[in-house]
């Protein structure tokens, strides 16, 4: 009944390899997100600094987290395609 029952076992390594890549990227993002929340909690003064053309660090970090999510997502998609492509050969 579940698709996993009838999927051929030879696909397994690719699946777990992409899962490993996903996990690595996940922890990278957790570090960014957690670091940002730590800044908000413990160093709010730092977020008022304006190193980027007059825009403060609070806005820059927020935009950065949104862009980082998209960049990591694209990296993951490409990496999975490479890994799965290799296993099908």
């Amino acid at each position: 009944m579940t698709p996993s029952d009838d999927s051929p076992p030879r696909c397994e390594p690719a699946v777990s390899r992409s899962a490993r890549i996903g996990f690595g990227l996940f922890w990278i993002y957790v570090a960014c997100y957690g670091g940002f929340i730590a800044l908000v909690l413990f160093a709010p003064g730092l977020l008022s600094a304006r190193p980027f053309g007059g825009v403060n660090l609070a806005i820059a970090c927020g935009l950065g987290l949104i862009v980082a999510a998209l960049v990591l997502a694209v990296v993951y998609m490409v990496a999975c395609r490479v890994v799965e492509g290799a296993s099908h050969d």
Binding site: S7, V15, A19, G22, L25, G62, I66, L72, Y76
Partner: peptide, 30 residues
């Protein structure tokens, strides 16, 4: 600014969806 913190949190949730949940959910469910 604080409204933007919600945006950041709402979007970050998609990282969990993509990296941890998406493939197993698709693989295991119907």
């Amino acid at each position: 600014y604080d409204g933007f913190l919600y945006s950041i949190g709402f979007l970050a949730g998609w990282i969990v969806a993509l990296f941890v949940i998406a493939e197993p959910i698709k693989k295991l469910g119907k």
